[in-house]
Design a protein around this nucleic acid. Structure first.
Lengths: 197, 197
DNA sequence: AAATTAAATGAGTCAATGTCACTAATGGCT
DNA sequence: AGCCATTAGTGACATTGACTCATTTAATTT
């Protein structure tokens, strides 16, 4: 707080007129950031079709946030998300809105028949964001580097394969009939999407 | 520290003779706990065969730990794992040993041909533990309840399916070709409907 | 210009971690 | 037993960081 006050050119006590606690100041700052992030997220996501591509975009976007703002994300992970005030804060709402897009992707994928219906979309959300959090730990701690695109691709593939009715090619030359059917299905999907727009 | 000293019946300063910082005391306590936990983990795991069953056991064991010691786990997640001293501590070693079992399960599964070889086992580890962390957040925050067996089953299924060469039954009469044909049929119907409107 | 409201100050409280010189106890050795 | 060395324990203090509040200063309205 002393550093914040100093940078603002005021005395510490002045901050407490606007933010009753340090915690709430941090929440407010993080909220601002979240709002910015959310704009590019939703705009970008709306322009992408296809379950797999959408999942990949979400992963990439999320990991990019971590890549560019590791300290802020760490604060969110360790202090904010664990605090009493988090429940009921705008941050939680943002977070839900952010995560709900994944649930929607998976739900709609299930509805269209591309994804299995026997798996909870909420679990898919947990898997996706949980995996990202784990996979970026080393980077966030300054102990490793991180290739957002690569990690995003891997996690998106994995989530997709966990939910897909028909697994993507394993690159090992499997069942010819199944692969052909996948190809037909993909082409039909593209055809259908092309017609809508 | 004052509470700890009081319970021990000594004065605060006495603690600092043995643990130079509060942080290191907490690490030591958590290490003790981790050691206990590790015993039942490794013993239990050694008696189980089959990739899917082993994954289920790991999930169940991990979630049980969270279920019975939520506060301790929260401290681990928020303070310890984020701290400078964590790198290089025994805790990290324990944690690696714990997590490496998952990597081994997946690696051996890939070797035996049951699991796909095109996915990194390390990513599987991240997915598994990350998903558990996410899925137990509500419980750890005292905002929801938790059924360890159910969540463990779901996550184990999901990880298995993400890695399996041959997906488990979806419980819907599972011939792969038949399922794909249903998907094609669905898409054709939607395409036809799109034409009308 | 006077009055009212808002913003800022700075001195100070409180709680918590950690420090240090000094004292008490313990255990091994002759 | 008596001595010595090592270890454990004490209590007063230092330091830091969040937070409070009576008072002063600035801005806005009337």
């Amino acid at each position: 707080m002393s550093e914040v006050a100093e940078r603002l050119g005021v005395v510490e006590g002045a901050i407490y007129r606007i933010f009753p606690t340090k915690h709430q100041l941090v929440i407010a700052v993080t909220c601002d950031w979240y709002q910015e992030v959310m704009a590019s997220y939703e705009a970008g996501l709306d322009e992408i079709t296809g379950v797999h591509e959408q999942l990949r975009f979400v992963c990439k976007h999320h990991i990019d946030c971590i890549y560019y703002y590791p300290e802020l994300v760490n604060v969110f992970f360790s202090s904010l998300r664990m605090s009493r005030e988090y429940s009921g804060s705008d941050l939680l709402k943002f977070n839900r809105r952010y995560a709900n897009r994944v649930i929607r992707i998976l739900s709609e994928g299930a509805l269209s028949g591309e994804l299995r219906r026997d798996k909870s979309p909420k679990l898919g959300r947990d898997i996706l964001f949980g995996a990202i959090e784990q996979a970026t730990w080393g980077y966030r701690m300054g102990r490793a580097d991180l290739d957002p695109a690569e990690v995003a691709g891997n996690i998106a593939d994995l989530v997709y394969d966990a939910y897909a009715c028909v697994p993507r090619s394993t690159g090992e030359g499997d069942d010819e009939i199944a692969r052909q059917l996948v190809s037909i299905s993909d082409q039909l999907r593209r055809l259908a999407e092309g017609r809508k727009s």
